[in-house]
Amino acid sequence: MTHIDVTVDGITRHGDVEPRRLLVHWLREDLGLVGTTVGCDTSNCGACTVLVDGRSVKSCNMLAVQADGHEITTIQGLADGDEWHPVQKAFKECHGLQCGYCTPGMVMASVDLLSENPDPTEEEIRNGLEGNLCRCTGYHNIVKAVATAAAEMKGASA
């Protein structure tokens, strides 16, 4: 067992984990943060995407021990209380989700994308989401949602 201290969604969490424990399993099963989903075992699908120190990371592709000392944000820590993040709002507004299974990762990847590029073109949005697979939406409304969120965030910061 290895001891880790990790800030998750603003709360410092302590754990003793087997080195082989995947970060996503630690989040889901040890902390009960089941909002983050698992969709594959080859790090292709991106459903498990969280932010580590503000950047998107596939939490199935990281060991819990590697998160020691770092700050993690999951879909469950994105909203400010009852106030949703603009990306969450835009996904609802634009019908950017159907079954919702890829949604946690898709939203977190979108947040990362917009933090790096606040005014992306459609092509930049599409390329920026290349690591997240969705089987329901055909991506059309996801792309629309990210563009909508970008406009919203730009307006808010202007």
Binding site: S43, S56, K58, N61, M62, D112, G131
Partner: peptide, 9 residues
């Protein structure tokens, strides 16, 4: 290389 999340790590 791969995708943004993979490139981050």
């Amino acid at each position: 290389v791969a995708d943004p999340a993979i490139r981050h790590r």
